[in-house]
Design a protein around this nucleic acid. Structure first.
Lengths: 244, 244
DNA sequence: CCAAAAGTGTTGAGCTTACACCCATGT
DNA sequence: ACATGGGTGTAAGCTCAACACTTTTGG
């Protein structure tokens, strides 16, 4: 948006005179958690280019569609969910990142409750949940996107109460701990973890217990939504710093 | 990058069959520090649209130019500097954010040594340094970009040794402290600040002293570049948490 | 010799860690 | 009763914030 005279001379001010128009895509790194492993929702492509190979779910941004709207559309097509939690990760724009045509890609990462999504929608897109640590090679620069997304997830979840997005509405503290252990790939102390989480006062005791457990049944909590949104940007040290 | 058959049928695989091509711009939030105030490098536009109003420095991404390259080009045109420190901030893509034509804008924030840049280059672009807290209203969504950039700068500088980018090669600890005070707009304790900074072991005593001072001359330090790049992503609590 | 800025030391409060112990449940 | 997993308490150690004192310099 800049230069000595960026408008056409016949200026109904409807187009910039120069500046190249490029394809703008949107690629989603969708994280899920099945109770044991951190997972990615990946697409086995049944179309060219790179047919048969794995990629992230993506799509082009349309002319009359904002970025947010495009993200919501694509995530809905993939999961059948509205109001999915997502954040922009980074925009990738190397000239040759897509061999077919110059494409700018806005990458975003999304966190969803793996049990709540629409399995048929995912099936229709040829999408499957794959364990993070067993993910296949991905097309283009999608592998780099996934690495960056994991970094950002770790970075953010260390201090912000973001992990809940990956769990069902009601969950136990041990479940939440398993999630954190999966994200950081390291064991955490039960008692200290519990204390840290409860000290945020973000959890409400539902009074119910996890009936699935075969031993002592853990208390089911739910998020205090209002407090959650209010405190979303406050710092809590769930993971001790120094991990980089 | 996704759909049932995204390629043209006459497939030399050189273009996707659908997907709209959009203008992709790049807007730079350039921070500087003059020893007392945090400043922004802003452009007084001498061209349409919004001629006479203030905006960020920007430009279009060209077809054969990567995003990084475009960022470096625009920052060079503006400051005459190569190897400017910058990070992507966020990509803005509301449909009507630019009234002339649908434009996707990748915003990035840059930190530069205000005394090292090329004044003539800035003058040629009609760019001026403006105090952060006296910045004028900006065109389009540039105001939001600046707010977000300040948030990110504060967020990042609280834990990562990023502030040095705004200072000259040799600087004193009191100067660095003034910078942090300007970024957070709050006074900091001299002794604790000094201890925190020195505990990173990122600073090398040059042996020289700041001759400009009229009282006790402070020691000039320089950055241990190697250690800096190695430790760049490690955590240091320069500012106590809880600011959100 | 005084004012102003720079440099160094100390202490108490609060938090984190590491650990031990008790409770609930199914076999 | 015992194995497994969930819940709570506590003491030691560390870090941070708050504050006092000394040093250097110019006037």
């Amino acid at each position: 948006m800049q230069s000595s005279d960026p408008l056409t001379l016949s200026s109904p001010m409807s187009r910039y005179a120069h500046g190249e128009r490029l394809l703008v895509a949107l690629d989603c790194i969708v994280f899920g958690f099945d109770g044991d492993f951190l997972k990615l929702l990946l697409v086995k492509r049944n179309f060219e280019p790179e047919k048969g190979n794995w990629s992230l779910m993506g799509g082009f941004v349309e002319r009359n569609e904002g970025l947010e709207a495009a993200a919501n559309r694509i995530l809905f097509e993939l999961t059948g969910l509205k109001d999915v939690y997502f954040e922009q990760l980074q925009t990738f724009g190397d000239v040759d990142r897509d061999p077919v045509e110059r494409t700018i890609s806005v990458a975003l990462f999304a966190l969803i409750n793996i049990h709540a999504h629409d399995q048929d929608a995912a099936r229709a897109q040829n999408a499957y949940w794959i364990n993070m640590d067993r993910r296949p090679e991905l097309i283009f620069d999608h592998g780099r996107m996934v690495e960056l997304a994991l970094d950002k997830l770790r970075y953010k979840a260390a201090m912000h109460p973001i992990g809940f997005e990956l769990l069902p509405e009601k969950f136990t503290i041990p479940q939440l701990q398993k999630l954190y252990e999966a994200i950081y790939n390291q064991p955490l102390d039960r008692r200290n973890f519990s204390r840290k989480i409860l000290s945020t006062r973000l959890l409400i005791d539902t009074g119910e217990k996890n009936e699935k457990s075969t031993t002592k049944k853990a208390v089911l909590y739910k998020l205090d939504q209002e407090k959650y949104h209010r405190q979303f940007n406050s710092f809590h040290y769930f993971i001790s710093p120094g991990k980089g």
